[in-house]
Design a protein around this nucleic acid. Structure first.
Length: 555
RNA sequence: GCCCCCGUAGCUCAGUGGAUAGAGCAGCUGCCUUCUAAGCAGUUGGCCGCACGUUCGAAUCGUGCCGGGGGCGCCA
């Protein structure tokens, strides 16, 4: 029996109790679903529900009395071993071993589909993340969004949503010109301009461009800026794309800011905003009245000198996403962009959308990094940067992705590079991966003994050990963890869950022998445990896949 | 000044209003002649920043303080 099945069974019990008059609760006070949770302590049974506590007021009776009415009826359900009323009115439910053990069969049968759901089926979601300027390598901040954004997309897909991963290329504006200028100066053997970029990558890029196009150096300075800027753009974007592929983060859409202008999207966007009546002219500039929607000041779309602002691009970009038919547009932005939240929401509102539905801005706190006990400062201008590529070289894709996904994004993150470099079990990713490798090895050994994972002869009632019960209980939580992570856009819940599951497995492994020893005959218990192992391996693999981390067969 | 985030064990951090607040690391102590010891078991460690409020029940929700970080542009 899965937790979901138990929950709906309890709802039926509730309805029956009300229908028969045992409980007097108005129909509109009945819950839509019954919450089931795993008690922390084993003495509180396999599952617990607080439904009696919540209903006590509507029923006009003490919680324990409500609980006791329900307990009698729950006791009569198939697969229930015991029901206790505890504390202020909790119902603690213990399942029969066979009912609980059947979960292993369900998981092995469903395979990769176990944990996937349909709660967001039919919802079209755009997840935009990283969105860097193509004028330098992706740094550690971008790396956090790469790992988290991609995992959010994976978790949403697992919940049934139709997801597009999108990277907005900030390829317009003065930063690009500074980039071109810095490349030109480097190509000519001159130091970078005061407000330009200084990193070693500039020298390398400039050299690569000159190698391909020595004739660029013969052009006038103004033209050199343009050709170096454009050639650098192409090379740098390609480098970003390659490193993201290495990081297992694939985008469905690379959306160029320039293309908003070339395609007429900006024009169309300005027309839409004017039609909705929220733009106006003042002092020769065109403004959007975002203060109508919680922004603290109106924003300029077109400056008095005729230039469009970055905000105009943002508006046009949102309106273009809208035309493309997304129900929810998720933006992952750094903490230094929190001032953008209200104006992005105001864009949606000005366009006639409900920002509470169509726009979600996830503000992530910055990543700090320590090496040798000293904070590593990041500054792209100075070239003193730790790139995504550096991090992957040092700790590997798995450890990097897992570590970055393990924390909620609104927590500032401190990474100790020395610790990550060690690749010991200081890093929980190894603990989880080790569990998967351990099971894989065990299943290989089983195959050599001629034992297969056999669902036909599987006797769930043999899984009676306390550690087996704990493991089954943990396995049952997975679907709820996935939908919760999707709804809350918090993939770290998957990582934390996997650590719990791995722990439950290691404990089981320590006290329950799976394979027959020596000359021992293979018993039905051995077979049943083998199915339990296979189920655990499946859930570990499914969970790691949601984080973009590999599930190794051997370590 | 206004806005956002954070404050939980020595350190890094989990904890979607539930029962005795958890994990890893660090410290101490045990467990490998048979399935991976990257493991398991035990032990040490807490005014959940402070106060008041809402609730049957608050680390969690509200208000006010205190402390730390970040942000305010006809910049991009």
């Amino acid at each position: 029996m899965t937790p979901a099945e138990l929950s709906s069974a309890l709802l039926s019990v509730l309805d029956a109790a009300v229908a028969s008059g045992d409980l007097d609760v108005p129909a509109d006070r009945l819950p839509a679903s019954v919450t089931i949770e795993r008690p922390r302590s084993a003495e509180h049974g396999d599952y617990a529900t607080n439904v009696a506590l919540q209903l006590a007021k509507s029923a006009g009776r003490p919680p324990r009395e409500v609980a006791s009415v329900l307990a009698t009826r729950i006791q009569a359900l198939p697969g229930i071993a015991a029901v206790d009323v505890a504390g202020p009115g909790f119902l603690n439910i213990t399942l029969e071993a066979a009912a609980q053990g059947e979960l292993a069969r369900t998981i092995v049968g469903e395979g990769e589909a176990y944990g996937r759901g349909a709660t967001m089926s039919g919802v079209r979601v755009n997840v935009e993340f990283i969105s860097a300027n193509p004028n330098g390598p992706l740094h550690l901040g971008h790396t956090r969004w790469a790992a988290v954004g991609d995992s959010i997309a994976r978790v949403l897909e697992a919940a049934g949503a139709d997801v597009a991963r999108e990277f907005y290329i900030n390829d317009r504006g003065v930063q690009m010109d500074r980039f071109g200028e810095s490349l030109r100066e480097a190509a000519n053997g001159r130091p970078a301009p005061e407000d330009g970029y200084h990193g070693g990558y500039i020298t390398d890029l400039a050299a690569a461009i000159v190698a391909d196009h020595p004739e660029y150096l013969d052009l006038p300075a103004g033209e050199q800026l343009v050709v170096f800027r454009e050639a650098g753009y192409v090379l740098q974007l390609k480098q970003q794309q390659d490193v993201l592929t290495l990081f297992r983060t694939e985008f469905d859409v690379w959306y160029s800011e320039r293309s908003l202008y070339e395609s007429g999207a900006v024009e169309r966007g300005l027309v839409t905003l004017r039609e909705q009546g929220h733009s106006y002219e003042l002092d020769g500039a065109l403004w959007l009245r975002t203060t109508d929607f919680d922004d603290d000041k109106d924003r300029v779309l077109i400056k008095s000198d005729g230039e469009t602002t970055y905000f105009a691009s943002d508006s046009a970009y949102y309106l273009d996403k809208r035309v493309r038919g997304f129900d929810i547009n998720i933006y992952l932005l750094g903490a230094d962009h929190h001032g953008y939240v209200n104006r992005l929401r105001a864009i949606a509102a000005c366009a006639g959308d409900d920002p509470n539905v169509s726009i979600e801005v996830l503000i992530g706190q910055l990543v700090k990094m320590y090496r040798g006990g000293q904070e590593v400062r990041l500054s792209k201008r100075k070239g003193d940067i730790v790139t995504l590529e550096d991090l992957v070289d040092e700790v590997g894709v798995d450890a990097a992705r897992y570590t970055l996904c393990r924390y909620p994004v609104d927590t500032p993150l401190s990474l100790d590079l020395d610790l990550l470099v060690k690749q010991t079990n200081d890093n929980p990713v190894y603990y989880v991966q080790y569990a998967h490798a351990r099971i894989s090895s065990l299943l290989r050994n089983a195959a050599e003994l001629g034992l297969d994972v056999n669902l036909e002869d599987f006797d769930a009632g043999l899984l009676v050990h306390a550690r087996e019960g704990d493991l089954l209980g943990s396995l049952g939580q997975f679907p709820r963890v996935v939908t919760g992570a999707a709804e809350l856009r918090e993939p770290h819940r998957v990582a934390r869950y996997l650590e719990e599951l791995a722990s439950a497995y290691h404990k089981f492994y320590d006290s329950c022998r799976v394979l027959p020893r020596g000359d021992e005959e293979a018993s039905p218990t051995h077979s049943a445990r083998l199915v339990l192992c296979a189920a655990t391996r499946q859930v570990l693999a499914n969970g790691l896949a949601l984080l973009g981390v590999t599930a190794p067969e051997r370590m």
